[in-house]
Structures are given as structure tokens and as C-alpha cells.
Design a protein around this nucleic acid. Structure first.
Length: 792
RNA sequence: GGUCCUGUGGUCUAGUGGUUAUGACGUUCCCUUGACGUGGGAGAGAUCCCCGGUUCGAGCCCGGGCAGGACCACCA
């Protein structure tokens, strides 16, 4: 027999092209099958270079799509790309070397769109198609498409109509670098060491009386609007109601009390500024303090900062500290570990400024949202706790307006005269208000278009509606909603999952999807998070180049859902071995199926029947694991069955029969070889999709008459298992193992000839399978007696 | 500070109150058998993080620790 080398790359290319040409994964809306729809996470379309964590995540639910197809569902699996928002803006600015604030919005958006298209093409080819992903490409969507904009704007208008969306002047979280408002979910912790400064304040009308206040943000002195002490703090009782003079700026502020003051922090006296932090906002609202906004939108100090105007906060702080020191007002400084909020994109510490923004009501729906989330099945279950934890702790309504250039425009105009808000008509969506003139209905004056855009989550939260063509094809949408599955990673439960559940609840009064599957989070081999900046990120394309896609997918298949997984290259080696083994086992099987008549024999040889029983049991277990998103559990079962039962044992047992056996015994083995190999291929096909297709097409396709193994049906074996056969087979394997052990102990080859002695009991059990036993252990005879292996 | 997850041979991992505690990688020894040496067989290697408790019986359930991780909150 000539060695047939496996050319993995050629196989991958061949079937990739075939699947695309034959539209194997096309969704058929007329199908009678139950629909399984996937609300895919649209990746940011950036470069085609993908790190293993992402590649694993996307492949993980892609495997689910294949599984559901195999289990008889009509799978709706649209690919999507997110090219809406800051990352795209930044990418275009950097690549083109332009400053977006110096171009006009329409032009900049055009550039972004053009760039996105290129990137999407690159990404689709180099990543998704390369990895063998089974999307229906005719359903491709992007978050910046006109249709996505329409959905996003429509959802906005509907929420406004329902009274769940409002515009209000509020302090908002602000990124000075990006010059935009941020949502709570976009803020990340930044640990740093700063200085706690002890500063003297004079007490008004109290000669020589001074109060020391500890502050980490002296640059906010011009915005100081009040001073607080704890109501039960005896040290400062005398101060309450008096006024202090703010150093450097000399305006007076009142001393008040609040329970929230920590007596033991600093000096126990706190200044409130508008706004240095969250507590400032809380006290400002609660005690109805004056508003002194000292920040420009770029984070620099404005005219209220007097001679410090125009300085950045950092510079302002330095200057003010210098001046405080000169005046002898800086008593001391001490280092302080603190955590501040920062922009998740650029790391700039966030500030708070007061502007008019659009909000979606969320706080009043907390409880309802938690109830909704309980209607959804979470895989793994404990991930729901993250959602509940986040929802319970929410402190702000969702701010949806962003001061950015590129994004979905907010479809409103404001009357210059009466400040009346003019909303777009549902029929004219999508609309960019900048490009459309509107007049105020009341005063007939020209209206000013809104320049802000919607938070990108405003669109992403309607991914089921975009992917499912809510407005474009309502008939279709009706069929596939609610979606069957939302696959996503755990770090965006508080954003993507949260906002999607919120939007679905508000717009449709139902859940967006039935199941949520949280993907595996990949760590580096030492168990640390992978980051480009840390230099420990591993690239999927390099691994695929080295081991092949199937080996990579094999590794993906071994990952448990919702847990962290340190990357081990070793797993890819194991995958490679598995693929080669599968290939060789198949070659062996086909060698002996050349004259197979394709019929099920009237009677199977006992060991063959046992094999079919084992197969049937495996199919059942794998089916159950697959249905509950337990890919790794299923994979373990398949592997155990394939490697252990099928190749190591069964193939060895029937060897002699298929080479030299009588017609009936050979036909029995042929039938079982055919059925069990086909079943193995199908079971593992969702994971290693290329090699299984290759093997299927080489032999099975002719008889099975399906275009691809990936649109074939789950094997159904009509079997009546008998306890007796099971017992015989298991005993057979037990004896086989014992003989192998003796041979190994005696340093003999596995095919060395022996004479075998079996106990009376074993003889009785094995009486119908002695021929197979004889051939597999190469025994010239089997006699009754005390168990023994004789090498003479 | 709150919530959640995870601690099982050297490494990774399965484990659903009763298993000689699963498998893989590594390691040692043997076998160039007619699919495969990228193979086959055998072996060594585990006080199941610690301390209590429930139970006839705990890796698994409960309580308390310890360690690692994630998410969130607070920080004047």
C-alpha cells in the first residue's frame, strides 16, 4: 500500500472553495426544519491579524452553528462587522494621517466607510473564511450600513415616543481626550499613586482661625462650592454654618454636614467641587449647591480659573500647588494610592462636565430587567450573576449621545428660537440631520441640526434586529425572533448583553434570545491575560500556518465554556495527531469497503453488534452534550470512542475477518465499519470540518448523496441493544487487554503467536466470539483451564 | 468593601455522594504487526489547597480559612 501524504493546505483550500461555490451554508427560509438563529458578535473590522483569544471565541460558536445544522435545525447564521464608533475613527485618522476635527463630517464618514469596506473584505477572507466559518455570506451586515442606521434611529424614535428616552442637562462622564461623553460601562479603573495635599482655608470673620482640608485635586479649588464635615464630628461642630475662604480664589463657601463624610480620612473636612468625582455630584444635587464649571470640553481650565485659564488640569494643579506653597497654605503632602475612572479607549482619567445629553431610562427598569434575564438560559449558569450584579448597582441612566464625528446621527433638530425638539419622521430614516433642513412647526424658523451621534451600543444593542432584518424583511424577522443564541464574551455582559436585553424589553417586551453562551477567555501559557502591549499575545494565523485549521479548531473544541483557558501549544500537536489518525483509520476502512454492498446484513457477528451498541451509546451522549453547549464534553466522548473503541480495539479485532474471512462475517464487519466511521466523522465534523469533509467526499458522498457532510443528518441507528452482547463484548476487551499486558511484560510483539487458556466461566461467556478473539491475539488455539498465555 | 469563578499526578484536564479518581502532554520500558512509528502495548507518578461538619460513606454537600483570577463599588 502506498503512503498517501496528507496535504492539509490543499484540503482546506479545496473545501473552502467548494462550500462557497455550492452555498452549503445558505439559510433556507422555506425550510420546514426548526430554525436556530445566532445573534453573532460583529467584530471590530480592523486588521486581519487575529489573536488566538478572538479566533477561539469566534470559532467556538461557529462550531455551535455546525452542530445545530447537524442536529437538524435550519441555521440562521449571519456574519456581521462593527465599523461604527471610535476605533474606526482612530484607525482612519492614523492611516490617512488626518485630523477629523479639520475635515467635514460627511467627508470623514465617507473615508471611514471606504476604509471599512476594504478591511471587511480582508477580514472575511483572512480570518472567517480561512478558519472555515460557516456563515451565510448573503446575510452580511455592518453596523454602519444604512440599514443598521435605520434600525438604530428607529429604536431611538420609538423609545422617545414611549417616553423612555429624554434629553437633559446633567453632569456626565467626560473624556477630555476624545471630547465626548461616556457611559458608565465605558469607564475603567486606573490605579495610580497621587498626592494628598493638606491645604489651609481661612474662616471668614474668624480672625486667625484656619481649617485644613485634604485634597487630591487642588486644581478644583476654583470650582469649590461647599465644605462638608460629619454631623457627629465634635472637632468641627463650631464650623458648621460658617463660611470659609477658598485659597487663591477668595470666594466664600459654606460649611455643611453630611453622613457620608469619613471622619478618619484626611482631616475629616471635605471640599465639594463641581465636579471632581461622583460624590461631588451626589452632594451637589442633594444639597442644591451652586454650579461652577471650570472645564472646557478638551479638559482645560476655563475663565473661572482666573489666571490659570487655558492650562490643562495637570498644569493647573502644579501651578496652584506652587502658589499655595508660596502663600504658605500648603501644610503637607502625602502619597496616596487611588483608583480613578478612565476612558476605556485612551486611559485618560475621566472628568465630569455639565452638558445637554440624551438618555435612555434604565434605573426604573432594574427589576424588570433582572426578571427578563432569568427567562434566558445562561451557559454557564453563573454568568447570570454578573448581569444581576451589574444591573443592581447601576447608578445612572444610559447616556446615548456622543460628541463624535463618525457614527449613527441622532435624528433630531432643535429650533433656534424656542428650543423645540423636532424629530425625524420614521419614513425618512436613516437620516443625517446635518444634510437635511427642517423648520420649527411653531415658529417657522430654521432648525439647528443635532451634531451628536448615538453611542455605538445603541446600534449594537439592536444586533438581533439588524442581523434579523427587522425593518427590511419583517416576515423573516418574525420567523427568527427571538434569536436562539447570543454568543459573547464575559467582559461585555454589562454592555452588549445588558443593552440588548434592555432594548428588547423596552421595544418588544420580550427577551432578545433564548440562550446566552459565554465564550472561553484565553490566557497566555502562564495564565495571564494576553495583551498586545505586554507582548504575550499569540497570533492565530501563525498557529494555523504551522498546524492547520483543523488542529486549531480541535484545540477550540477542547475549551470549556465560560472559563479561562491558558493556551497550550501542545493541544494543537494533539489535534494534528488526531487528524492524521482519522485519515489513516479511514484509509484502512475504505480499503476493505471496496466490495461493500451497502446493505445491512440480516445477522451481525456478535462483536459487531457490540460495536454498534457502543456507537449508539456514544451518539446519545454526544448529542446530549452538544445540545447543552458542552462541546468539550462531546469531543472527549467522540475521541474516546474513536481512538479507544474503534481503532485500538475494533479495527484490530476485525482485521483477520476482512482480510481472510467468510463472506457473511466480512459483510457484517463491512457494514459496521461503514456505519461507525460515518458516524464518527459526523460527530466530529463540527469541530474538524475540513478533514471530515475530505474523507466524506472521498467515499461516503457517493452512497449518501449529500453535497457535504456538513448538511448531512445526524446518524440514527435503529438498535435494540441486548445486555448479553454488552457483557460478551466487555469481557472480550478485558481478555484482550490481559493478553496484551502479558505480551508487553514478556517483551513480545503484539502479533506474536500464542496459545491461550481461559477459565471455564470466560469460555462460557466468549463461546460465540472465539474466532475473533483468536485472530486479534494471534492465538493458534484457545483452551479451557487456568488463565494463561503460552508463547511456544 | 461587594459579587462571582477556580484550586485534582511534573503540566493541563474529566469527575453527576459509593470509580482500583478520567484522559492528554511529558517521563520509563517494550514492540520496525499487512491504516497509521505523527503508531501500538505496558509501567511509574495524586496526602483530590487546608481545617472542621453532615453522612454508613465526601474530590463532590455545608461552614470557616488560605491561594489565584474576574467583574463591580469606594477613595475628598
Amino acid at each position: 500500500m502506498t503512503k498517501k501524504q496528507l496535504d492539509i493546505k490543499a484540503i482546506e483550500e479545496k473545501w473552502r472553495a467548494y462550500w462557497e461555490k455550492e452555498k452549503i451554508y445558505k439559510f433556507n427560509p422555506k425550510s420546514k426544519k426548526k430554525i436556530y438563529s445566532i445573534d453573532t458578535p460583529p467584530p471590530y473590522a480592523s486588521s486581519g491579524h487575529l489573536h488566538v483569544g478572538h479566533a477561539l471565541h469566534y470559532t467556538q460558536f461557529e462550531i455551535m452553528a455546525r452542530i445545530m445544522r447537524l442536529l437538524g435545525r435550519e441555521v440562521y447564521f449571519p456574519p456581521g462587522f462593527d465599523n461604527n464608533g471610535l476605533p474606526t475613527e482612530k484607525y482612519v485618522e492614523e492611516k490617512m494621517g488626518i485630523d477629523k476635527s479639520k475635515t467635514n463630517r460627511a467627508e470623514f464618514r465617507k473615508l471611514c466607510l471606504k476604509e471599512s469596506e476594504k478591511v471587511i473584505k480582508e477580514y472575511s477572507d483572512n480570518v472567517f473564511k480561512r478558519l472555515g466559518h460557516s456563515y451565510d455570506w448573503s446575510l452580511l451586515y455592518t453596523t454602519i450600513s444604512l440599514e443598521a442606521q435605520r434600525v438604530s434611529q428607529m429604536s431611538f424614535l420609538k423609545l422617545v415616543k414611549k417616553g423612555d428616552c429624554y434629553r437633559k442637562e446633567e453632569p456626565v462622564i467626560w473624556c477630555g481626550h476624545h471630547q465626548t461623553a461616556l457611559a458608565q460601562a465605558e469607564v475603567e479603573d486606573l490605579h495610580r499613586t497621587t498626592k494628598l495635599n493638606y491645604v489651609y482655608f481661612d474662616v471668614f470673620d474668624f480672625k486667625n482661625e484656619k481649617v485644613t482640608i485634604a485634597t487630591t485635586r487642588p486644581e478644583f479649588l476654583p470650582a469649590c462650592v461647599g465644605v462638608f464635615v460629619h454631623p457627629k464630628d465634635k472637632r468641627f461642630k463650631y464650623l458648621v454654618g460658617k463660611e470659609l475662604i477658598v485659597p487663591l480664589f477668595n470666594h466664600k463657601v459654606k460649611v455643611m454636614t453630611d453622613e457620608k463624610v469619613d471622619k478618619d480620612f484626611g482631616t475629616g473636612v471635605v471640599m465639594v467641587c463641581t465636579f471632581g468625582d461622583n460624590t461631588d455630584i451626589e452632594w451637589w444635587k442633594k444639597h442644591k449647591l451652586e454650579l461652577k464649571s471650570i472645564l472646557n470640553v478638551d479638559g482645560s481650565l476655563n475663565e473661572l480659573a482666573g489666571k490659570y485659564e487655558g492650562l490643562s488640569l495637570e498644569e493647573g494643579r502644579r501651578k496652584m500647588l506652587e502658589d499655595l506653597e508660596k502663600e504658605g497654605r500648603l501644610e503637607s503632602q502625602e502619597p496616596l494610592e487611588q483608583t480613578v475612572g478612565s476612558c476605556w479607549r485612551c486611559g485618560t482619567p475621566v472628568e465630569y462636565i455639565v452638558t445637554k445629553q440624551w438618555f435612555v431610562k434604565t434605573l426604573k427598569y432594574k427589576e424588570e430587567l433582572i426578571k427578563r434575564a432569568r427567562e434566558i438560559k445562561w451557559y454557564p449558569k453563573f454568568m447570570r450573576a454578573r448581569f444581576e450584579n451589574w444591573t443592581e448597582n447601576l447608578g445612572w441612566d444610559w447616556i446615548i449621545s456622543r460628541q463624535r464625528y463618525y457614527g449613527v446621527p441622532i435624528p433630531v433638530w432643535y429650533c433656534e428660537e424656542c428650543d423645540e425638539v423636532i424629530f425625524a419622521d420614521e419614513k425618512e430614516l436613516p437620516v443625517d440631520p446635518i444634510e437635511v433642513g427642517k423648520k420649527c412647526k411653531k415658529c417657522k424658523k430654521k432648525a439647528r441640526p443635532e451634531k451628536d451621534v448615538l453611542d455605538t451600543w445603541m446600534t449594537s444593542s439592536n444586533s438581533p434586529e439588524v442581523a434579523g432584518k427587522w425593518l427590511e424583511n419583517p416576515e423573516l424577522y418574525k420567523k427568527i425572533k427571538p434569536f436562539s443564541l447570543r454568543p459573547q464574551s464575559h467582559d461585555i455582559i454589562r454592555t452588549w448583553a445588558f443593552y440588548t436585553i434592555l432594548k428588547s424589553h423596552l421595544l418588544f417586551n420580550r427577551i432578545p434570545w433564548k440562550d446566552v453562551m459565554i465564550g472561553t477567555y484565553v490566557l497566555d501559557p502562564d495564565g495571564k491575560g494576553m495583551h498586545k502591549s505586554k507582548g504575550n499575545a499569540l497570533w492565530a494565523d501563525e498557529l494555523i500556518e504551522k498546524y492547520g485549521v483543523d488542529a486549531f479548531r480541535y484545540w477550540v473544541g477542547s475549551a470549556g465554556i465560560g472559563i479561562d483557558l491558558p493556551f497550550k501549544e501542545q493541544e494543537l500537536v494533539a489535534g494534528q495527531r488526531f487528524i492524521i489518525k482519522l485519515w489513516n483509520a479511514s484509509r484502512f476502512v475504505f480499503m476493505h469497503l471496496k466490495d461493500f454492498n451497502g446493505k445491512k446484513p440480516k445477522k451481525l457477528v456478535e462483536i459487531d453488534e457490540w460495536m454498534m451498541q457502543k456507537l449508539s451509546g456514544t451518539l446519545e451522549k454526544v448529542n446530549g452534550a452538544y445540545e447543552s453547549y458542552n462541546i468539550s464534553g462531546a469531543k472527549r466522548e467522540i475521541e474516546k470512542f474513536f481512538w479507544n473503541t474503534f481503532t485500538d480495539n475494533y479495527l484490530e479485532i476485525i482485521k483477520n475477518r476482512v482480510y481472510n474471512g467468510m463472506k457473511e462475517e466480512k459483510e457484517s464487519a463491512q457494514y459496521v465499519l461503514y456505519e461507525s466511521l460515518l458516524a464518527i466523522l459526523k460527530m466530529i465534523a463540527p469541530i474538524t470540518c475540513f478533514i471530515t469533509e475530505e474523507i466524506y467526499q472521498n467515499y461516503f458522498a457517493l452512497r449518501e448523496k449529500k453535497k457535504s457532510i456538513h448538511v448531512s443528518e445526524w446518524p440514527s441507528l435503529d438498535l435494540k441493544g441486548s445486555k448479553k452482547v454488552e457483557k460478551v463484548g466487555d469481557k472480550f476487551i478485558e481478555v484482550l487487554k490481559k493478553v496484551r499486558q502479558v505480551k508487553s511484560e514478556n517483551k513480545k510483539a503484539m502479533n506474536s503467536p500464542v496459545k491461550l487458556m481461559l477459565s471455564k466461566e470466560d469460555m462460557r461467556v466468549l463461546k460465540d466470539v472465539l474466532d475473533d478473539l483468536k485472530s486479534v491475539v494471534n492465538a493458534s488455539e484457545i483452551k479451557e483451564g487456568k488463565f494463561g498465555v503460552d508463547f511456544k
